[in-house]
Design a protein around this nucleic acid. Structure first.
Length: 647
DNA sequence: ATTTTCGAGATTTTT
DNA sequence: TCTCGAAAAT
């Protein structure tokens, strides 16, 4: 295959070229938004293959989202023309690969499941029931946050069943009893093991633990991975950092790209010091700055620069625009939240007409997902097509999780799935009967499914819906060996009446989504050209985000600021710029305020040609007074034009 | 006695 | 949109 690498290299500016050519050793790229980070990563990947003859499987390129990984894989493939055997993946994807082949070494069965937050909460509630404590006193969301923190802090290993107490207390915003918290944590670990489930954190910790404990495994990967590149390095947490450090130790070719000013995940454990002190931790590090911004017009850049300057704790690296434009940053202070939504809708129509833009070209960004509601209502009223991006990722949708739960129940017979679908559609299996089953299950040390099998036919479980469900269930289960995954899914959804119920449901999206899921299973089977075991399918499905539904190909894009990272739009509207909105006002420390400012910075820097900021005055939903965000006044005077109405 | 349904109230950010 | 609690329906 003929590849004109020279053409690719010529496409790069001086600073980008420098970065790409820095092949050996430790390299750190500090790159602002819109400076061609991804391009540099991709080019370097290809360059390594082309000029150094490195095999693709010997390069690990890690990104944070599946989307970014897919994007990069696509680009590399289009340049090099080879698509298999690439290690372009997310941290979680890489770890899952290790786990799939090695988790038996931890006495975990190969059939483990990845659970998400929802299921974690369910696990917790079971624990609460066992411990006789109330969810009111221990809010599940907070407790789960604590558990994540604790796992990170305790040098967590998979078989911990007794929490060491040394580091337990420090740093927790503890307003719940420490002793109880400790007990909850230990019970959580036990239950996790009992159910053979891993949460997202475990994927990293388990993989890390495996590598540390098994020299052969470590040797294999250290030899294999001659070059490692990490994108968005400012977002790595301790576990991810340690994983990278471990993997690079033999060849010592580590190339990290990131922007400390775009650190917006510190609440998830990411730590800027990993990138800021990279040169100290890896002596001999070459650092390159990318500051030429190809994305935004000069006025937008000016606004970004002057905003982020207010962060004291940072390395100054102002963006340099290449596009000079007349456009200004516009700010509309709305009378109230309805006025804000209404203005946005009209501004969109205006932009589409005056600037000859497509709906596609416009992104609406907000701090918290609930803020989309008011906007959505207004967009519907004005008949503007829109898509909420990642409002809920595809596999996180209720109906998709239900459908998968049916499959899981067939294969694993686990309690989480059981509870999820046993009363869908309604089978008179409510609180009381379920409690009866749980009691039985605990007394006899069996799963809920087994309990139901044992008790069916006797009161209080002697009624036709249950008998019917079990007969359907057993029927499908008995022929699992014979039929494909897609057939199994199809049958179980059909015969249990779940699909029927969805059809009656007024929310017509749901049935479409389930159909899409079925199609995707079929598609995967066709691509693989073989039977995909259900267990195999389930193990990976948690990581597939690609099944986003694009019902409106040309629509305004709504998303949270966190979800917009890495994207760009010709026109960006940042709404809800109020104190308590952006900044969120939840935390009041200096560090937390700086993170909010970085969020605003990320949001602003998505815009290419137009940036519009809106805020509301008056009262919010809870009748509390609204004040304009401090970030609005932090942008240097004269860079923002205030408007009263559309011209 | 239980389940189902319906309406009110509340929300940071996510792999 | 999602969760929770009280009234309506089995």
């Amino acid at each position: 295959m003929d590849i004109d690498m020279n053409a690719i290299m010529q496409n790069l500016n001086t600073e980008q070229k420098q970065a790409v050519l820095a092949t050996k050793g430790y390299v750190r790229i500090l790159a602002g938004p819109g400076t061609g980070k991804t391009k540099v990563l991709t080019s370097r990947h290809c360059h390594l293959v082309q000029f150094y003859g490195v095999e693709q499987k010997n390069i690990l390129s890690v990104t944070f989202t599946n989307k970014a990984a897919m994007e990069m894989r696509k680009r590399v493939t289009s340049i090099l023309g080879i698509s298999w055997q690439t290690n372009i993946c997310t941290f979680h994807g890489f770890c899952l690969g290790i786990l799939k082949h090695n988790i038996h070494r931890l006495n975990y069965p190969n059939q483990f499941m990845i659970i998400d937050r929802d299921d974690q909460v369910k696990l917790l509630r079971e624990i609460y029931a066992d411990m006789n404590i109330s969810a009111h006193e221990y809010p599940p969301a907070e407790v789960i946050e604590y558990i994540a923190i604790l796992k990170g802090r305790l040098d967590y290993v998979p078989h911990v069943t007794r929490a060491s107490t040394a580091n337990f207390a420090s740093g927790l915003r503890v307003d719940i009893g420490l002793d109880s918290m400790k007990e909850i944590f230990v019970n959580y670990l036990k239950k996790q093991r009992e159910y053979k489930v891993l949460d997202f954190d475990d994927m990293l910790y388990f993989a890390l633990y495996l590598l540390r404990q098994h020299q052969d495994l470590l040797d294999y990967w250290q030899n294999e991975l001659q070059y490692i590149q990490v994108d968005e390095f400012q977002d790595v947490n301790k576990a991810q950092y340690e994983l990278v450090v471990l993997l690079q130790a033999k060849h010592r070719n580590l190339f990290v790209v990131g922007d400390p000013d775009q650190t917006i995940y510190s609440w998830r454990g990411s730590d800027i010091s990993f990138i800021n002190e990279f040169d100290r931790n890896f002596p001999g590090t070459q650092t390159f700055l990318l500051t030429t911004n190809y994305r935004s017009s000069s006025s937008i850049i000016d606004a970004c620069n002057s905003l982020i300057k207010h962060n004291k704790n940072r390395i100054d690296k102002p963006l340099v625009p290449v596009t000079i434009s007349e456009g200004m940053v516009i700010h509309y202070p709305a009378k109230n939240i309805y006025d804000e939504a209404c203005f946005i809708a009209r501004a969109i129509l205006d932009t589409v007409q005056q600037c000859n833009a497509q709906f596609n070209d416009i992104g609406i960004l907000y701090r918290a997902s609930y803020m989309s509601r008011a906007i959505e209502e207004s967009l519907i009223e004005f008949r503007i097509p829109y898509t909420v991006v990642k409002g809920t990722a595809f596999y996180e949708r209720q109906e998709i999780k239900d459908a998968l739960a049916f499959l899981r129940l067939l294969v694993y017979g686990d309690n989480i799935s059981f509870e999820r679908i046993i009363n869908k559609p309604a089978r008179k299996m409510g609180r009381v009967r379920l409690h009866f089953l749980k009691q039985y299950a605990r007394d006899h040390q069996v799963t809920l499914l087994q309990a139901l099998l044992d008790c069916a036919g006797r009161p209080p479980l002697d009624y036709p819906e249950i008998t019917q469900f079990l007969s359907v269930f057993n029927e499908v289960k008995s022929k699992l060996e014979l039929i494909s995954t897609s057939q199994a899914l199809d049958e179980i959804l059909d015969k249990t009446g779940y699909e029927q119920q969805l059809r009656h449901d007024l929310n017509s999206d749901r049935i479409d989504n389930v159909m899409e899921l079925k199609r995707s299973v079929t598609r995967q089977e066709e691509t693989a050209g073989r039977k995909i075991e259900i267990a195999e399918y389930l193990a990976e499905v948690a990581l597939y985000a690609e099944l986003t539904d694009n019902r409106h190909p040309n629509s305004v894009q709504l998303m949270t600021i966190h979800a917009c990272k890495g994207l760009e739009f010709p026109y960006v509207i940042v709404c809800g710029m109020n104190e308590g909105g952006l900044p969120s006002g939840k935390g009041d420390s200096e560090a937390e305020m700086e993170e909010e400012r970085r969020l605003a910075y990320v949001a602003f820097s998505r815009a290419r040609n137009g940036l519009m900021l809106t805020n509301a005055n008056g009262l919010d939903f809870n009748r509390r007074p609204l004040n304009p965000s401090r970030f609005l006044s932090e942008v240097k005077l004269g860079l923002i034009r205030r408007v009263k109405k559309l011209n």
